[in-house]
Structures are given as structure tokens and as C-alpha cells.
């Protein structure tokens, strides 16, 4: 088997608004023998706000992390689709253009030419650990869950730097969920945008985008949405209900991280704790499907 030791870049959300993503990632990796050493003193990748306002800043913020990863000498693992995208794009720019590399080196004060790989956990699970090995660890088939896989934008676009098997119709997450016994519902909105960083500033726009996604998910017969991005999850959960007092339809469709379902199927402890952090409580669904009892 390939070496599964990584410098782990947890990302800001995974200890804040997406705590359940961070906890379930660590638990799943521990159980599957994926060794994570947290990248020392990592900083925020800058996300959308950096690249939308300042090109050099958007390369230099991930650049500092890449410089630390270079010192550590291991491949880097991320779980947040946004961190993953920013890290990969910065790495490609730095290694692809020596002038950019020199500029970032001057800004950061360290060598950012990290030549290891930046990986996303979904990619590592599908391509390195691989399904025969994951299957050995499964204890509980997730019968009763009808999920639409929601990749969002940054796991698949731009395809030159991203990891999924297809840019218009990726299936990595579909196949992983099917392995867990989930009924994966076909739908056409796998890679449609949730509105991303407009969530706070133009809530009205994000509500429209999210409600379209949820309506389509329900039409596909789903009783939950599964994602690999904390921004998608936050928008899908927080913007299901209209922000102000109106009489719109509420969806109440649970949104789960793929790592939570993997942990549940592997029978790991702590699953109930992760589920408590969701704004749309997934416990009624878990009880209804008898996957969790209390």
C-alpha cells in the first residue's frame, strides 16, 4: 500500500463552524491508518476574499503554508474543498513561474517551492486506500439513507488542478457512498454553486441558489445531502430557512459530511456527538432509518 503519512492542513472551519467535519475526518483517518501530523502553525488560506481582492495575497497566504509543508517534507492532506483549491492553485502558480515563486518567497520570508503533493481526503480514500480496503472496515450498511452527492465547485474546478474523475459529472463521492450502502440518487446539480462567500453579504441570492438545490434534491428522492465542503454545508444548512420572517417552504433536509457517514458505517464512536453540531438536526432521520438509536 502507498505511504499514507501526511502533513494535515485542517483549515479554519474544521475547528469552528464545521467542527463535525474536523472530528469525523480525524476519527476516520485514525481508523484507516492514515497518519495525520498537523502542519505546524498553519494560517488561513485566504479563501475567496483573498483572490477576489489581491492576486499576490491569494498566493502568499497559502504560500506560507506551502513553505512550512516543504520543511516538513510530507505530502499535504486537506479536507476543506476551499483550502484544497487555494493550496493547489498557489502551488501551481509558484512551481510554474519562477518570478511568482521569488515574489512569494520575498513576501513570506521562506521558500514556498513545495514539491510534494496536495491531496484531498476524498481523493486519498478513492485512489490510495481504495474500496477493497475500506470495505473491510465497514460494520453498518447505511440502508435507508437516500443521498444526493454534492461536490460543489472547488473539488472539481478548475479541472487542471483538481482531483475528481470528471468535471461535469464526477462519481468519486457517488461510488464511495454506494460502497457504504447509501442509495445514491441521480441528480444534475452535483457541481452547481451554493453561492459561496455571498452568504453574509447577499443572503437573498444565496437563499435562492440553496433553495433551488434543495428542491432538486427532494425531487431526486433524497432524504439527505452529502458534501465535502464546509462552505457548501454551511450555506445549505443555514440558508434553508429564509433569513427574515416569510412564509416560504422549509426544506429541513439534513446535510452531512462524507466523513460522518463513513464513520457511521465503520461503527466509530463519537458519531452522535458529530451529529449534534448540525443546524438541521439529522437525528430524526437517523432514528427513522434505525442507524442511530438515541
Amino acid at each position: 500500500m502507498t505511504d499514507l503519512t501526511f502533513s494535515y492542513f485542517p483549515g479554519c472551519s474544521q475547528s469552528g463552524s464545521a467542527e463535525e467535519f474536523g472530528l469525523s475526518t480525524e476519527a476516520v483517518c485514525r481508523a484507516l491508518g492514515i497518519e495525520l501530523a498537523e502542519l505546524p502553525d498553519w494560517n488561513c488560506c485566504g479563501a475567496s476574499s483573498a483572490h477576489m481582492t489581491d492576486d499576490l495575497l491569494s498566493i502568499a497566504l497559502p504560500g506560507r503554508n506551502l513553505a512550512i509543508a516543504r520543511e516538513e517534507g510530507k505530502d499535504m492532506l486537506t479536507v476543506c474543498a476551499m483550502c484544497y483549491s487555494r493550496m493547489k492553485i498557489a502551488q501551481a502558480r509558484i512551481l510554474g513561474d519562477e518570478a511568482v515563486a521569488r515574489e512569494v518567497e520575498e513576501v513570506v520570508g521562506a521558500d514556498p517551492r513545495f514539491r510534494g503533493e496536495v491531496r484531498h481526503l476524498l481523493d486519498v480514500l478513492v485512489n490510495d486506500v481504495a474500496f477493497p480496503e475500506i470495505r473491510k472496515w465497514l460494520r453498518l450498511p447505511l440502508a435507508g439513507l437516500r443521498a444526493v452527492p454534492y461536490y460543489g465547485c472547488l473539488l472539481v474546478r478548475p479541472p487542471e488542478v483538481c482531483c475528481c474523475d470528471s468535471v461535469e459529472n464526477p462519481t468519486d463521492l457517488d461510488r464511495l457512498l454506494a460502497l457504504l450502502g447509501v442509495d445514491v440518487r441521480p441528480w444534475s446539480f452535483k457541481t452547481d454553486c451554493c453561492g459561496g462567500s455571498l452568504s453574509l453579504s447577499r443572503t437573498d441570492i444565496v437563499e435562492k441558489m440553496v433553495n433551488k438545490l434543495l428542491t432538486r434534491a427532494e425531487e431526486a428522492g433524497a432524504n439527505c445531502v452529502v458534501t465535502a465542503c464546509p462552505m457548501c454545508a454551511a450555506n445549505l444548512e443555514m440558508r434553508q430557512k429564509p433569513g427574515k420572517l416569510t412564509f416560504k417552504v422549509l426544506h429541513k433536509l439534513p446535510v452531512l459530511y462524507f466523513t460522518e457517514l463513513l464513520g457511521l458505517a465503520m461503527g466509530l464512536s463519537g458519531v452522535e456527538e458529530w451529529m449534534k453540531s448540525h443546524i438541521i438536526d439529522p437525528m430524526p432521520l437517523m432514528r427513522e432509518t434505525k442507524l442511530l438509536s438515541h
Binding site: 475567496s48 477576489m52 465547485c153 474546478r157 478548475p158 479541472p159 454553486c193 459561496g196 462567500s197
Partner: peptide, 10 residues
Amino acid sequence: LCASCETCTT
């Protein structure tokens, strides 16, 4: 308002 979803780019 462009959310940088990169659908157009792709």
C-alpha cells in the same frame, strides 16, 4: 456578485 464557481472558465 461573481461567486468564482469557475463554471464559465471550465
